[in-house]
């Protein structure tokens, strides 16, 4: 349903995404793996439209020139010129790198702000659902976003994104800086959410190992280019991938 075709992004003259084509079908979990500065966040921003805002602000402030070429398609219609708020309305919700919670608002308020696009009934139902998937949040409802641990913050960030009623959830490095235990809790949560809410998920990570068990299809980025792609099984059987991304040979 969401597709990028020959996507290129330049920051001034620096090529951050090099001719990327990726695809995420209905009810699929797609992984995007790559080392630091491989272009994962740039891809997420291009898909969610945030890149247009970055581009506009840079342009206004007389900063760097950002160029995008290629196409982003949602249900086979180009959304390249659609601004982020409209893409969100169409169901593309980005849960950004470093979570970006509203630090001065409580957990409950963070979730309610997330429910901006939801109807009253949807918001109420989703709120209950979030507490069901991440029961750790029940005790933290009143706590300010700025005073949560990394794992708690990530749960709120995912919950907040769910409140916006996504059809495609984009998760940019959701496991960054979390303990292995918290990582597996979140990964299980993400799989449950994908199945129960019938949504698609695109998830980016530096290390493939913790996420790999739940992805249906994955891309491997290096310096802005997709150097490899395939289903979980295909990639798992590939010796190069094993060596580079699982630390075994």
């Amino acid at each position: 349903m969401l597709e990028a075709k020959d996507l290129m992004v330049f920051y001034e003259n620096m090529l951050a995404l090099n001719n990327i084509s990726i695809k995420c079908d209905d009810n699929q979990i797609v992984g995007v793996f790559g080392a630091n500065s491989a272009g994962k966040s740039t891809l997420m921003y291009a898909l969610s439209g945030i890149m247009l805002d970055i581009q506009k602000k840079e342009d206004m402030a007389g900063g760097e020139r950002i160029t995008l070429t290629g196409d982003v398609l949602l249900q086979n219609r180009s959304i390249m010129d659609m601004k982020p708020s409209l893409r969100a309305k169409a169901g593309i919700i980005l849960c950004p790198e470093r979570r970006r919670l509203f630090k001065e608002s409580s957990v409950l308020e963070n979730l309610r702000i997330g429910g901006y696009l939801a109807t009253r009934a949807e918001a109420k139902q989703t709120m209950e659902y979030v507490m069901e998937v991440f029961p750790a949040l029940i005790k933290l409802k009143k706590r300010l976003g700025g005073f949560l641990s990394g794992g708690e913050q990530q749960m709120v960030a995912i919950g907040r994104a769910l409140m916006a009623q996504p059809k495609i959830l984009l998760l940019d490095e959701p496991l960054l800086g979390l303990s292995p235990f918290m990582q597996s809790t979140l990964i299980r949560g993400i799989k449950v959410i994908q199945e129960e809410r019938n949504i698609s998920v695109i998830i980016s990570e530096q290390y493939a190992r913790p996420v790999f068990p739940i992805v249906d299809y994955a891309y491997i980025l290096e310096n802005g280019a997709a150097v490899m792609e395939g289903t979980r099984e295909e990639l798992m059987d590939n010796p190069d991938v094993k060596a580079a991304y699982f630390g075994v040979s």
């Binding site: 945030i50 309305k89 919700i93 970006r100 509203f102 702000i113 997330g114 916006a164």
Partner: peptide
Amino acid sequence: QDERAAMMLGID
């Protein structure tokens, strides 16, 4: 608090 994070949630 965070204009861009708000945008990601559909807030114009």
